[in-house]
Amino acid sequence: MSALAWIAMGSLTAWGWLLLGQGLFWRTDQRLPHCGVSEQPHRDVPAQWPDVAVVVPARDEAEVLPLSLPSLLAQDYPGRAEIVLVDDNSTDGTGDLARSLAGRHWGLPLRVVTPGEPEHGWTGKLWALRHGMAVARTGEPEYLLLTDADIAHEPDSLRSLVSAARTGDLDLVSQMARLRVASGWERLVVPAFVYFFSQLYPFRWVNRPGGRTAAAAGGCVLLRTETAARADVPHSIRHAVIDDVSLARAVRRAGGRIWLGLADRVDSVRPYPRLADLWRMVSRSAYAQLRHSPPLLAGTVAGLALVYLAPPAALCAGLWAHDPAAAWAGGLAWAVMTGTYLPMLRYYRQPPLLALTLPFTAVLYLLMTVDSAVQHYRGRGAAWKGRTYARPETAPDQ
């Protein structure tokens, strides 16, 4: 066989493994059951609903807060719950807006607190969570719901999370919020973002009791307070850029049971209308995911090229050069790739033909990852919300 055919066969072999041996990552059926009021008699629900504190770190979130905070205030939760919003030194009136929204929307009680600037060694979000969790613990809640300021929840969201945690004896329950897909770039990049994440951290492996894979989605995490203290979070992960994965690993190391799935009733309202917005979202933490390792970066670039770029290249080149082995292997690998992407596109309610663009999207992610490394070595590191971490650290086991 030609060299091109061998490359295509290598890609096809890789896709065979990804299809069957990577925790069925491409399936989208790891989800919490709907726990609406009308369905309660038909579901296993706690006999007594525990106290919960909702902690919301917010830095310059005045644009999205009117779309998200009212959904938290309106939570239909049978137990006692309160919201602690941490106004992380905002300059756009986030704290005042939150108080105003609480005054206009009756519901859960809201406290707005403000930490100082982060101490050395802390990333901004984890510093805000540290302060918010400390305030929340004064009420001795059994659970903490850590949710971002751009996340909107359906009225039964908290009820569903707590029900899953209690009935499943889980220490951490996390849902990956459905991200916005309105602009053309969002349609191209966002479903692939979740697809790649689930490929790295197959949800079935995460949810397997005693498994080694640990991950969470930082926008929506229900955490048992006792387990948070035992895992010493957020202090033990204070330097983590990828804080959600680090949190899940800390909980698992402390003996906690975790669950991660896709959300049906939890949505991100933050817009990413331009490619530049999406680029910043991915590149700010991509190199941290690779432990700031040049060999891992080189391996990732080579792997992305083999798995995502080789199939269409081999198909086209094989047809042009009359190399049937290369064309056949490349075409079959591309077909498997396309088929594994279809469930995620269906989850995001996008047209199936968009699956054919996955190789192009993979090129974008490859370039974002390389750019993340370049920014790191230029000393800019992970920049977010006006803060730059020149040499960001990851959790000890990342």
Rank of each mutant, 00 (worst) to 15 (best):
Ser2Ala: 09
Gly10Thr: 05
Gly10Pro: 09
Leu20Arg: 13
Gly21Thr: 06
Pro33Tyr: 08
Val45Ala: 07
Pro46Ser: 04
Val55Lys: 02
Ala62Val: 01
Leu69Glu: 07
Leu73Ala: 05
Gly93Asn: 03
Ser100Phe: 02
Leu110Cys: 08
Gly116Asn: 06
Glu117Met: 12
Gly121Val: 04
Leu126Thr: 05
Ala128Asp: 01
Thr138Lys: 12
Gly139Thr: 14
His153Gln: 09
His153Tyr: 14
Glu154Gln: 06
Asp156Arg: 09
Ala177Lys: 01
Val181Phe: 03
Arg187His: 11
Val189Ala: 05
Phe193Glu: 04
Arg204Glu: 15
Pro209Phe: 08
Gly210Asp: 05
Ala217Gly: 09
Ala217Val: 01
Ala217Met: 00
Val233Leu: 07
Val241Ala: 14
Asp244Pro: 00
Ser246Met: 07
Asp267Gly: 02
Asp267Phe: 15
Leu278Ser: 05
Ser285Val: 07
His292Cys: 06
Pro294Asp: 00
Leu297Cys: 07
Leu297Arg: 07
Ala302Leu: 15
Ala302Lys: 14
Ala313Tyr: 05
Cys316Lys: 02
Leu319His: 05
Ala325Met: 14
Ala327Trp: 13
Trp328Asn: 03
Gly331Ile: 02
Met337Lys: 09
Thr340Gln: 12
Leu342Arg: 07
Leu345Asp: 06
Pro352Cys: 01
Pro359Thr: 10
Val363Ala: 13
Val363Tyr: 07
Gln375Lys: 14
Ala383Ser: 12
Ala395Gly: 14
Asp397Trp: 15
